[in-house]
């Protein structure tokens, strides 16, 4: 499903160029549940942004399904994002001034879907996540766990092939955390590819494979035993 070849991401700083990701090579198959781990600043979130096509300023080759993403312009990449990818954020990022129902409708509103069809999709997801009773509540009226439940529901409402979850349980206590992870497991079992970033070994255990990042390099990838930090880590 995903092939990354020599992906590099740099930032221009006053002192010169700072590398955030270095020569990333990664293969992800359809239906996999991948965990990305690493200390702060290792490039996990940047990797997620590139995978989610929110970031354009990288070099290398990125193949997503049958698309050569590196050859696509911003608009085409944005289309791929809308069609195939769902995001779950650590801070939930629900829109404060919208109800649960409206929050779920937001990603659909950016697709070319009729109002009626959208309504049935939202109704189905409310039902599936058993949050029908909360559809008219605002985020501030929900607990953290409930908010993240809505966050996950929002990520899957458009039936994405890939869910990118950036520390989805970072702000939740353990029981809520388990609930969300079980939910991811169910989604993965149903065929959705999931890539999660986490600091929790417990959450990592839900995945099929854990990739370790350090200082922008992949230092460990069970599918690629050669991956390691080179002798000189920085240019």
């Amino acid at each position: 499903m995903i092939q990354l070849r020599n992906i590099e991401r740099t930032y221009k700083t006053g002192a010169g160029v700072t590398y955030v990701l270095r020569r990333i090579n990664l293969d992800i198959r359809d239906g996999e549940f991948i965990t990305v781990m690493g200390p702060s600043g290792s490039g996990k979130s940047t990797l997620m942004s590139i995978l989610g096509m929110l970031d354009d300023s990288w070099a290398g080759e990125y193949n997503f399904l049958e698309h050569e993403v590196h050859k696509l312009d911003r608009k085409k990449r944005s289309e791929l994002n809308r069609k195939y990818i769902g995001f779950v954020f650590q801070s939930y990022h629900l829109l404060d001034n919208l109800t649960v129902y409206e929050n779920l409708d937001v990603p659909l509103s950016y697709r070319n879907i009729s109002r009626g069809q959208r309504a049935s999709m939202v109704a189905e997801i409310l039902d599936r996540f058993q949050i029908v009773g909360k559809k008219d509540l605002y985020p501030s009226q929900l607990s953290g766990g409930q908010q993240q439940l809505v966050g996950v529901a929002r990520a899957v409402v458009g039936n994405p092939k890939l869910i990118l979850a950036d520390e989805p349980t970072g702000n939740l206590h353990s029981s809520q955390s388990k609930e969300i992870m079980d939910l991811f497991k169910k989604l993965n079992d149903a065929g959705t590819t999931i890539i999660q970033v986490t600091h929790s070994e417990l959450n990592a255990a839900y995945g099929h494979r854990t990739i370790q990042l350090f200082d922008g390099w992949i230092t460990s990838d069970p599918a690629n035993p050669q991956a390691r930090i080179p002798a000189v880590a920085t240019p």
Binding site: H93, L95, V106, P107, Y110, G158
Partner: peptide
Amino acid sequence: VREIGVRMALGAQRGD
């Protein structure tokens, strides 16, 4: 800013 970021992550284009 964050809201706009979220919307873009959820598929909003510049025009949106």
